[in-house]
Amino acid sequence: MAIDDHTVEYVAKLSRLELTREERELFREQLSRILEYFSKLNELDTTGIPPTSHVIPMRNVFREDVVTPSLEREVVLDEAPDQEEGYFKVPRVFEE
């Protein structure tokens, strides 16, 4: 399962990760090796085996629809890298 530069670029973009050239090369090599090892799973025939995404059987848990206190806006915003007039502030999304 060899991973090429293009795939590393593509996955990094999906992951919202800027990579240096060294990291790109390192990850291409390491991820290829790890995925090759993972191909061991193909030794097993899993036709008809249900997937387990959660070990303990449980269904949706509901609570009464009553208002309970939330975190205070000021306290939360105090931890933000940037804020303005009660909102999180981010760099511009669209070009002018």
Partner: peptide, 13 residues
Amino acid sequence: FYLKALQVRTLIK
């Protein structure tokens, strides 16, 4: 990969 792993998780359990 992912679905396969979830199925093998069933076998391990």
